[in-house]
């Protein structure tokens, strides 16, 4: 946003003023978002305060705000788990993606574009298919399990799938491109001369990395961690496919209550709480990280 205004510099006439045109351009898209994003969220808030009616799946608006509290206390374990898993998965993804992005930005020469395409490429092979692939790779019949068993590194009673690490590895895997691309974006913008200057000013490679590279790549770190944490916290596919009943995340609960038990008020309350909780965390994080430009 700010960039656009800045780009036109002193030329304020560049942005045409007092015209109806921008509103006409905005209208259809924003109307769509108002109808199918804003209105649904508001409806969600209302649905959450309904109580069961006569038939199954029928609910009457009674403004029972305590529903929120009940929903929260009823699923506090899953909430905690969601944020914990998402947090660890985000750190894991950051640890994997940072060197990857760094390598693409500074060490890949003319292969830069190809490597960038490769980062996004797995997206094109269905997300569910890939998660199932992980399940089979790590599963009892899969190559990883077999090898570890043959090497006597694990016993036959150990499971690689249906476990907490499997869920977290799956989450980190799924959102890795979301982490890598913004990191690459901010690393790529660093002028290599700045790094040379740091070396010239008696910083060794590690100090240069810590004092120059990392601070300059912070916008990418913030964007990447948000793009990973937010969907990871709301995900339930990984927990469903790679987990077991004790790894259920809040997404599994909301999903089940919407689609199986049809307890819409509780599901709506949980969804809204999830959204608010994530928004608050994001706000605190962004303020601490001191980055304003997100879009």
């Amino acid at each position: 946003m700010a960039a656009v205004v800045r780009a036109s510099g002193t030329a304020t006439s560049e942005l045409k003023k007092k015209s109806l045109v921008p509103y006409l351009l905005l209208a259809p898209g924003l109307l769509w978002l108002a109808l199918f994003f804003v209105a649904p969220i508001i409806t969600l808030v209302g649905t959450a305060t309904k109580t069961p009616g006569a038939g199954i799946g029928e609910f009457i608006q009674t403004y029972r705000w305590a529903n929120y509290w009940d929903a929260l206390t009823g699923a506090s374990a899953q909430f905690g788990r969601s944020f914990l898993y998402a947090f660890i998965a985000t750190l894991l993804a950051l640890a994997i993606a940072y060197p990857l992005a760094y390598g693409i930005a500074f060490k890949s020469g003319k292969y830069k574009n190809i490597l960038l395409v490769l980062v996004v490429a797995p997206f094109f092979c269905s997300f569910i298919l890939r998660t199932i692939a992980w399940k089979q790779i790590l599963g009892q019949n899969g190559p990883v399990y077999r090898t570890l068993l043959d090497l006597h590194l694990i016993s036959s009673t150990t499971h690689l799938t249906a476990s907490v690490p499997a869920v977290i590895i799956g989450l980190a895997y799924n959102f890795l491109p979301f982490m890598t691309l913004p990191l690459y974006g901010s690393l790529e913008r660093i002028d290599p001369r700045v790094l040379e200057a740091s070396g010239d000013l008696y910083a060794n490679a590690f100090t240069t990395f810590r004092k120059v590279t990392v601070p300059l790549s912070m916008p990418g770190v913030v964007a990447g961690t948000l793009l990973t944490f937010i969907p990871a916290a709301g995900d339930y596919v990984n927990a469903e496919i790679l987990g077991n009943p004790s790894t259920k995340m809040i997404g599994n609960v909301i999903n089940a209550q919407f689609l199986n038990t049809q307890d819409y008020p509780t599901a709506a309350a949980l969804s809204f709480i999830l959204m608010i909780a994530i928004s608050i965390m994001v706000m605190i994080y962004v303020r601490k990280a001191g980055t304003e430009e997100l879009v």
């Binding site: 199918f36 994003f37 709301g234 709506a268």
Partner: peptide, 18 residues
């Protein structure tokens, strides 16, 4: 910005509600 920052689950669930 908001739809990108909301978990898919919330988007899907709220649409279903409406």
């Amino acid at each position: 910005f908001l739809p990108m920052a909301s978990p898919e689950l919330v988007l899907g669930a709220s649409l279903l509600t409406i």
